[in-house]
């Protein structure tokens, strides 16, 4: 999903809504909130894996965006700019919580814990069916994402979830193309390491 998409027929373009917001029109901002809240909430949730906190932080991101709108020069897509604000909000929250850095997974960060029975299944055993196996893999992926540093989380989410091209990622973070590729490579290597048993068992 690219950062800037052409508006649907009959849909007011972001740029027009932004201009109205800059003139103080809160109803125009409500349209932007409705348009992007699902993506912002998903991105926030993937980073912290807590519904309540993700809801609150998404709110905070939109409020900060409203405050910053007068200085938004429209030199990037609105969503790219909004994404940057959201990432900073989440990053600050993570830093305050001091849960990044040591690489240890904090089990309290997820509301969707793996069922005790599922965790007790020894590696290599066949899951009862494909659906359960997929659900298990999904939880393992969420846990692995939560163990990454915020920078690695960000790069993985922008590339794999948002589907941004390297140049769009560089603009969103912002950083150089070299940094994008380097971070992406090491983030994927880290995920491979964390999910090694899943892929070895599946091979």
């Amino acid at each position: 999903m690219p950062a800037s998409t052409a508006p649907e027929p009959g849909e007011v373009p972001d740029i027009d809504l932004v201009k109205r917001c800059q003139a103080g029109d809160t109803r125009a901002f409500d349209v932007l909130v409705s348009r992007y809240k699902g993506r912002i909430y998903a991105m926030t949730y993937h980073m912290i894996q807590n519904e309540t906190e993700a809801w609150d932080l998404s709110q905070e991101a939109f409020i900060k965006a409203w405050r910053a709108l007068p200085s938004f020069k429209m030199d990037s897509a609105f969503y790219t700019w909004l994404y940057r604000i959201t990432h900073n909000v989440v990053y600050d929250w993570l830093r305050k919580k001091k849960i990044q850095g040591d690489g240890e997974f904090d089990d309290s960060r997820t509301e969707h814990r793996i069922a005790a029975g599922a965790e007790a299944v020894p590696h290599g055993d066949q899951a009862p069916d494909t659906a359960m196996k997929n659900a298990e893999l999904g939880k393992r992926i969420q846990q692995a994402i939560a163990k990454l540093s915020p920078e690695h989380q960000q790069i993985i989410l922008l590339r794999e979830v948002e589907g941004l091209a390297y140049e769009e990622i560089a603009a969103a973070i912002p950083c150089s193309l070299g940094t994008v590729m380097s971070r992406l490579f090491y983030a994927r290597k880290k995920l491979q390491e964390l999910l090694k048993d899943c892929y070895e068992n599946a091979a």
């Binding site: 809240k37 949730y45 409203w66 999904g138």
Partner: peptide, 23 residues
């Protein structure tokens, strides 16, 4: 697998309340 298990968009719980709180 990442693309399958990490959706780019998720329904926001109490979506209408989310908007009204911001307003």
């Amino acid at each position: 697998d990442l693309r399958t298990h990490l959706p780019a968009e998720m329904p926001v719980p109490y979506g209408d309340f989310f908007n009204s709180q911001i307003q």
